[in-house]
């Protein structure tokens, strides 16, 4: 999940009877499955929550370039290099059209960027973990993109038109990324003992953080209930986490890798895997800025922005000069 624990401003979900006229018409449209478009009336809370959710997703794509960008120069073949570069480029592209979707709600990309750079805005906890080996490129594609897809596929049906449409495009590319990640893992697992060990080590490090991507259990969260009522969140966190585990465990078996969870068991009654306790303390530390790479990630984004100020200013100055020249030519003529 690229958006985690998005707050909604709600202290409880209102019933239709408690809503005013505008709210009721809005909610009934959402309930009927009619898409909300930028010019439609919407409750303030809906607008603010969507801005938080979409921008958190966009920021995650932007910061998400960094851990994988770390291995572009060391990709082991030209084909792998090209695929990884294309993937990182896709992430920047996702960021671009998600910021575009957020802008339809009346917030500028500059404002959102400032929130990210100052540390006020959140992005997915997963990108605060380091990429230590080539196998991490496989594990990220397989697990991280796999987990993201779990959440993003249902969001293609979310109530806000521009977000739903952005998700359709994102999902197509994410599923390609996931297949590529699995393909890297497959090559490593069919390779030498050293390569297979590299793959197992990557799974060992990325498994728990991938499960944390879905966020803590939220069956009692009022924010999740409100977001579900607005159809900008479709499934519960645990529901998606279990779906992800059930999908991934057989894939790990196919690879010949061991899931690093001694408590992982098939639960016949539920028809799903039971998993061990997740270390939510670690999750809250990472979300709170104390993850292994939080400082590095934010520092890298700030450096890019600050070092690039002259570039952006220079092109603006050129645009102004060109415009002034055109005006004076127009006047002379």
């Amino acid at each position: 999940m690229y958006a985690q624990m998005v707050k909604t401003e709600a202290d409880r979900v209102k019933t239709l009877a408690e809503m005013d006229e505008c709210e009721r018409v809005f909610q009934e449209r959402v309930d009927r499955g009619v898409k909300i478009e930028p010019k439609d009336w919407m409750p303030d809370g809906y607008r603010k929550t969507l801005i938080r959710q979409i921008s958190q997703h966009a920021h995650s794509e932007i910061v998400g370039q960094l851990p994988e960008g770390n291995w572009i120069s060391r990709a082991p073949t030209l084909q792998r290099k090209v695929i990884l570069l294309a993937k990182v480029q896709d992430e920047a592209g996702h960021g671009l059209y998600l910021y575009g979707a957020a802008e339809t709600l009346g917030v500028s990309r500059d404002e959102l960027t400032a929130q990210l750079l100052s540390g006020r805005a959140k992005y997915s906890s997963i990108f605060n973990y380091p990429t230590l080996s080539w196998a991490d490129m496989g594990a990220i594609g397989w697990l991280v993109d796999g987990a993201a897809i779990m959440n993003q596929v249902p969001l293609q049906r979310c109530s806000y038109g521009p977000y739903a449409r952005a998700m359709i495009k994102v999902c197509k590319e994410e599923s390609f990324h996931q297949r590529q990640g699995f393909d890297i893992m497959m090559s490593l697992c069919r390779g030498s003992a050293a390569q297979k060990a590299m793959a197992q080590d990557a799974l060992d490090r990325w498994w728990a953080p991938s499960l944390m991507m879905f966020g803590p259990p939220d069956e009692h969260s009022v924010h999740s209930a409100q977001s579900k009522a607005w159809k900008i969140k479709i499934n519960g966190n645990d529901e998606l986490r279990h779906k992800f585990v059930d999908q991934t465990v057989p894939q790990a078996k196919l690879l010949g890798l061991e899931i690093p969870d001694p408590d992982l068991r098939w639960n016949e009654a539920r028809g799903s895997y039971d998993i061990g306790q997740i270390d939510w303390e670690e999750f809250f530390q990472v979300v709170g800025g104390n993850g292994p790479c939080n400082r590095e990630r934010l520092a890298a984004r700030n450096k890019a922005h600050e070092d690039g100020a002259w570039f952006r200013d220079g092109l603006m100055a050129h645009a102004d000069k060109t415009k002034a020249r055109q005006q004076s030519q127009g006047e002379a003529a």
Binding site: Q65, A86, V88, R312
Partner: peptide, 20 residues
């Protein structure tokens, strides 16, 4: 390709990756 994620503006991240 080293500019991916580090360029002065998002559009340049994309452009540098494209040229690479």
């Amino acid at each position: 390709s080293q500019w991916a994620g580090h360029a002065p503006i998002l559009e340049e991240d994309i452009a540098q990756a494209n040229i690479a």
